[in-house]
Write a protein that binds this DNA or RNA. Sequence first.
DNA 1: AAAAAAC
Length: 592
Amino acid sequence: MPTSWSDSVNKAPTANGIGANSSSQTSTYVPPHLRNRPPSAALASAPVPNAGPTWGNDSYGQGGPAVGPRKDRNGSGSSWNNRNSSWDRGREREANPFQNDADAEPEYGEQESSGINFDAYDDIPVETSGKDVPPPVNTFADIDLGEALNINIRRCKYVKPTPVQRYAMPISLAGRDLMACAQTGSGKTAAFCFPIISGIMTSCQSDQRQSRMQHMAFPQALILSPTRELSIQIHQEAKKFSYQTGVKVVVAYGGSPINVQLRELERGVHILVATPGRLVDLLERARVSLQKIKYLALDEADRMLDMGFEPQIRRIVQQMDMPPPGIRQTLLFSATFPKEIQRLAVDFLSSYVFLAVGRVGSSTDLIVQRVEYVFETDKRSHLMDLLHAQRANGIKQALTLVFVETKKGADSLEHWLCINDFPATSIHGDRTQQEREYALRSFKSGKTPILVATDVAARGLDIPHVSHVVNFDLPNDIDDYVHRIGRTGRAGKSGLATAFFNEKNSSLASPLANLMQESNQEVPAWLSTFGGGGRNRRGGGSGGRFGGRDFRRDNAYNRGGQDFYASNYNTNNNRGYGASGYGSSTVTSAWD
DNA sequence: AAAAAAC
């Protein structure tokens, strides 16, 4: 029985074959946060287990020239490389987003280079449903994204599309609406950014003139996310993808000076990344119009449509000047997608494709999950024990993310840790935006290797090297738990998630036990003595706890009403749906 | 009840 943090971590990973059994000539999965590193520096210093030709290999895909002569999609002789319009203005002073990547991340040593065996993806369970679903591609070269974008893909060291990209990109490029369940760590942002950028590049000449209305911006794509930091992260990614394509990406979020954002918007914007509140503000000031929107993407879509956000989203999407579904293209991405949220989402979609992409040995298999019974009053000393054990093991740069329920609780725990000689910082909604961003940087850099956070940090944030997530206070919703623990165990690395459980969490007992069981975790016997009373909104339904199932396939949905979905309905199950039954509650995963 | 999200 593992008694310490390091015991757990050491025995956990690789059992499922991920990262092991490399076949040397195949591609290696390159996790997002490693993709921009120079091929030589960090990697040459350490042995590379899956030493295939992929690291530092400039070609991508499964062969064929990376960037070939490209046919002009418009049929006209012109291309977006023509220098004749405002399209090109400002390209010279566009900062190189790839430049500082090497400095941005400190060295983390050998384990850095361990990759995930991409072969594991061959068995990935994928479900698509909807009418006439475009087939997946195998390489970036299989689709025509445009030369400038292809160059950036290479700069990002993306060798081969991840599963979600393989499926989502052709669907998006075909102009279809999409509801996709996918994991952030596997290239979700790119999956919706590439087709959007490509589409904007293709249409740019015809739609060139920025409006005559000087102070109104007319973005062609809108990407919404539930937190400021996630919007910032998406913006950073999107800027890399669109570098020197002429496609301008602007981010707008609250808590920082609006004038800066207004100025950016005035300089032209094709893709606007935003949080809902600030966007509403901009719309009310008539500084942004949505009438030119061709693409709408909701990241963490289930969060965006839950009770807290739904009114704002409806206002933005349905009550301003945005083109309706069928005219614009709508892309919804999330990991967890409860049926009731899927039902709401229908209002925003037109004849959409549903896509669920899992991967072999889902994230939760890489994460050792532990539940410990801890009285409310003992939580601090128990946390202290864990941290001391961690420190005793001398693990450098082991970042620990501690989730608490309330903002006040975050402040006081941070303070308590600091006075007890554990450098900690915190992030929550009562802190200033400056403080929030500083805290995140300080944590990422290892300067304060403990971050106490509310749910503001639960979703989407890609923080490399988080090796331990502590649910100091458990969330009420099992989905939130899944998102929280998904901050660790990323990129094929081991991770540990420790939960402090007591009577207050009774309602989570059974969904938590189920999730852990599905993830092949040891479930403590005492856990089943709780629960009973707790209702899990997904408990009775079919398909296990994972939201990755098209709710249109539920009989209940069609019962009574007209069976609008039955005809032309097609579902396409690719592998992994054997006797174990993907939809029959054996599925686990830390869909992110 | 809490958290997030505009000024």
